[in-house]
Design a protein around this nucleic acid. Structure first.
Lengths: 163, 163
DNA sequence: GACAGAATATTTCAATTCAAATCTTCTTAC
DNA sequence: GTAAGAAGATTTGAATTGAAATATTCTGTC
């Protein structure tokens, strides 16, 4: 038996649009699971999950940010960010500060440890994609982007934390 | 200001592969969030989440199944399935039975209520994709599938529940 | 037949995710 | 100036997710 998981109805040819939809759903679920398994692995090896790492990298790239901005950058709701910050703070990778004159605003800063982590960061899930893309001609890469963009337009993700 | 969320570095042109990667990551995150928001909405309107609905639909399509098979069809680990079945059972949509001579195996069956739900199922996330695909020519649909497939190959999702 | 190991399902644990509610602080309208 | 409402962050609660450990049952091998 093949070691490769088959979609419920193996889609070997593509006449019926319904099969195509199944194939698309299947591929999306695969991406999700790749992401899920990757974050578990990361957590085990480096004691940092993928969302946490994304958060650290965002702070490294854009400087200190309030949670609401982080939410935008890593594309989750801000109630999700609170928990991520909590865990990063416990590990001493970030600190919460009140720097803004507006005292509702909290500023998240990387600690030295946080910067060190960002510097020699374990490869985020992105790395696999970067490596994979290297072998592809530019045209195919653009094809992937076009396809994904069409998909997201279909799904019509409503706006996130934007006023 | 636009009501549309921008990726951190708006990717308006695509020379640098790194920007393409960011764009891809961004689109993937968008798909994830669409899925997340959709399942919450579903849960609120129909008291059934997307994974639960997927599970019901799998049972409707393939007949009674053990949890391990369901895990394969809906592409999650079997420890995840247990919780989903728990909640479906509480709602009276499925029942756990011991039908197999192998007494380790548990068979999950739809109840009448479960079948009714499957019959006039609320649109799964698929529906948005189906609707979206309708307006696209076949060639573009295949392009989307090709792009996604290339991506998943890059991510090299290891096998799931398969022996 | 007994015993080691495989297979199936579950439990336990921690992280993520979001909606909704809450708390604090600011801003605006009067 | 005060009151109403907005805005930022957090809390609470429920669902999903998978790894690891556990329990039960089966399947060999000796």
């Amino acid at each position: 038996m093949s070691t490769h998981v088959q979609p419920p109805s193996p889609a070997t040819d593509f006449e019926a649009p319904h099969d195509l939809v199944k194939e698309i759903i299947y591929e999306i679920r695969r991406i999700l699971q790749a992401r899920e398994l990757y974050t578990k692995e990361l957590n085990k090896k480096y004691q940092v999950s993928a969302p946490q790492l994304n958060c650290v990298l965002a702070l490294y790239e854009y400087g200190p940010l309030p949670p609401s901005q982080i939410a935008r950058y890593i594309m989750v709701k801000s109630s999700t960010v609170t928990g991520i910050i909590d865990r990063l703070e416990q590990k001493g990778l970030v600190i919460r500060l009140r720097k803004s004159p507006d005292r509702r605003v909290i500023t998240i800063e990387l600690t030295e440890a946080g910067k060190r982590l960002a510097d020699n960061a374990p490869p985020p899930i992105q790395q696999k994609i970067i490596d994979g893309l290297k072998s592809l001609p530019q045209g195919e890469i653009e094809e992937i982007v076009r396809g994904l963009t069409k998909l997201t337009h279909m799904l019509e993700v409503q706006d996130l934390e934007v006023a």
